[in-house]
Every structure is written in structure tokens, then in C-alpha cells.
Design a binder for these strands. Sequence first.
DNA 1: AAAAACATGGAACATTTGTTTGCATTCTTC
DNA 2: GAAGAATGCAAACAAATGTTCCATGTTTTT
Lengths: 202, 202
Amino acid sequence: MIKQDRLMDVLDYIRRYNDENGFPPSVRDVCAALDIKSTATAYDYINRLREQGYLNKAEKKNRSVVVRGNSSVRVPLLGVVNAGQPILAVENNEGYYTLPEAEFKGDDLFLLRVHGESMIDAGIFDGDKIIVKRQPTAENGEIVVAMFDDGTMDGATVKRFYKKDGKVVLHPENTSMDDIVPQNQESVRILGKVIGLMRSFR
Amino acid sequence: MIKQDRLMDVLDYIRRYNDENGFPPSVRDVCAALDIKSTATAYDYINRLREQGYLNKAEKKNRSVVVRGNSSVRVPLLGVVNAGQPILAVENNEGYYTLPEAEFKGDDLFLLRVHGESMIDAGIFDGDKIIVKRQPTAENGEIVVAMFDDGTMDGATVKRFYKKDGKVVLHPENTSMDDIVPQNQESVRILGKVIGLMRSFR
DNA sequence: AAAAACATGGAACATTTGTTTGCATTCTTC
DNA sequence: GAAGAATGCAAACAAATGTTCCATGTTTTT
């Protein structure tokens, strides 16, 4: 009954404006862009879109129309795994990335740059950025970021997590590498579970 | 000389507010949140942050403070590669994803869901979403999305691109598969170059 | 064809918000 | 310790923007 096309034009414009400017348009911006003569009309369109669930809008707040269903999560890049440093401190924050929430849901996510080839058979390559959900435990077979003290090595690594005979086994997905069974089992600390990754080719 | 800490508090707040609401705060929002008594003070902070390059702000526009260095690109997900359908039309649009521009620069990007194991040795797995930069040509060794007509197969595939003896060779990164040398060389069409990928574990 | 519902515009009004100015207070610097 | 700079505040102003009301034309329903 309503010219849905026109509504979609408005929606598209709001999306585009926000993309280009980083903040939403005003009612009058909408008017100007779509050649609408009255602010009341544009105001009405916006309300319709809100009623139909296409966007959110805070009452009386200027420039507060937000298109729904494209939520993003801001995730901090905390450093490099395998580089020998604890990576929990916010100090190591190297910047934030905005990721699509549809893909990477969850609280308390962070990014790590992967160093090394130890997970190559799981499709995690040197230089990839992995998305990690911070949690202190893991289930068998999950890929985790873990830390443990061991005479030889210290720091965080990405490995597949197993518990065999009551012992934590960190399994590299690389046929040329052996499982790690930390001597000091008590020192093993799970930093989080790997829930995704991002790669960009040079 | 200036209390840089205080400035950073303001910056953090702006960031946080925008994350939570989807649009930037007003000067008075900043005042309220950081217990600043005068709008002039908050206004001043914001200006300082702008001068120091931390944020952008459109003059006289309400709620237009945007933290810099976190730009995103909106990229459409156009469909599935290897599924036998041309994927250039906007019709196939399955939604938009917001990706960090720092990782995935460029105009005319789009996403495709990968189907099949043909690029597994290049770390591209079944189910991955690849980020493609639309372009009609490619250089030797680049990973591309290409289409070609051939009695047997039709549709788009991801392969590594080579030109050998004047002929286009599409090389699967999977030791159990053979190179594809399209019979009808003229029909080969490069849709774009793969510049990155995204994966989320279930 | 009349009545009702709808769509849009014009104009005014009310808030929200950005911006300016001047003053008091604190901190620097000499 | 005084001059000067830097900082923060209060208050007012001006502009941007959201919101409402009503009129007019258009479409749909009866």
C-alpha cells in the first residue's frame, strides 16, 4: 500500500550517508538528497522504517537514525602469538578493528597476529589475524590460545586443545611438529578460544 | 603541558558511545559522562583532539565527531563461488558486511562464500568468505575468481591464475586436482582478484 | 460519486546542540 | 612573587534539527 520503493530509497541513503560520513544524516539531509519538499514527509518515512524494523532512532536526539542489522563489533588487536609475551594487558593494544557481528559474535573478543606455521594444516597461516574469544577453559578439539611455563618456551601459542589421560595436550596442526605436553601442567593457562580468522594477501 | 590523560578519556568515551549507540555523542553527552561542568570545556577538548588528529568533526553539524583511524568498508556478500551462477548482479546481494579498511583497502570489493576444497593448500577452505577486488585482469600467480564456458562446467571458481604459452591456466591449490586449461580460452573472464578472506569456526 | 484513508507539503514551534565570550582560578615562568 | 599563559566554568546566543499541526491533493474504498 505504501510506496515501499521510496522507503527503500530513504533507507539506502541513510546507509550511504553514514558510510561516507561516519555519522547519520539529519531529517533535512534526507529531504535534500531525495528531493523531498517537507521535513514532515522525511520524518514520516523515517518513522515508517522504524516501525517496519529497518532502523533504530533515539527520540529527540539529532542525527540518531541507525540502520539495523549491520551491527559491528570493535575488537582490539593485542599483539602477536608465539612471540613470548603475555598479551592480556591493554597496554599492548595496537589498535581496534571493526568486524561484522554476524560473523564474530560474543563478548570479550580480541585479535592476535599469528606467527609461525604450527597450525598450517588447520588453515591458519603465518601472518593471519585470529579472532579469539577470551575464556579460561576449552573443550576437546577446540583451537585455543594458551600460555604455559616451560624451561624452553614461554609465551602464548595457538594450538588444538586436547585432554588425554588427565593431561593437557597442545596439538600443532602441522605434520612435521610434535604434540606439546607441558611438563608443568599447572602452569597451562587458556587465554581463549579461536573463533575465526582474517587474512589479507599482500 | 596539557593533561593528555583527560583528552584520552574524552576520546575513549566518544569511541565507546559510538560503539554502543551507533552514532556519536553531543558535546553535552561528553560533559555528563566525564563530569565536565561547562560545554565550553568539552568543546575545547574535542577541538584539541581534532587538532591533534585523533578525530574528525564537521563544523556546526550536530553529533558529528568521528574517531579517526577506524574506517570501515561496507562490502556486499554476492553469493557462492563454484555454484554455477554468474554473480555480478546486485540481485544476488545477500547482505552487507562491514570490514576494517586497514585490512581490506580498495574500491569495488565484494565477498563470496567459497564452496569446495580446490584451494585448500593456499589456506582457502570450504565455507570461507573471500574478499574479492573486482577487476578484469590478473597477473601471474594471483588468486582470482574466474568464469568460463566449457561443456562440462560453468560458473565461477577460485583458482590461481597463470598464463602459460599464451594460454590461461587456472591452477587449483590442491595436489589431488589438475590444472584447468579452458578449451574455449576466449570465454575466460576474470571477475576479480582475491585480496583476503574471513573465516569463522562453528 | 461520496466518503474515507493516505501521501505530501508548508509552516511554525520546541529542543537539542554547537559556538562564543568573558571571568575566575590555577599553573608556569621569570 | 608578579606577569602571563593555560585551564575550566557559567551563561548566553545562534544555529541545527526534531516534531507537530493542518491544509491540500491523491488514491482507495464503499
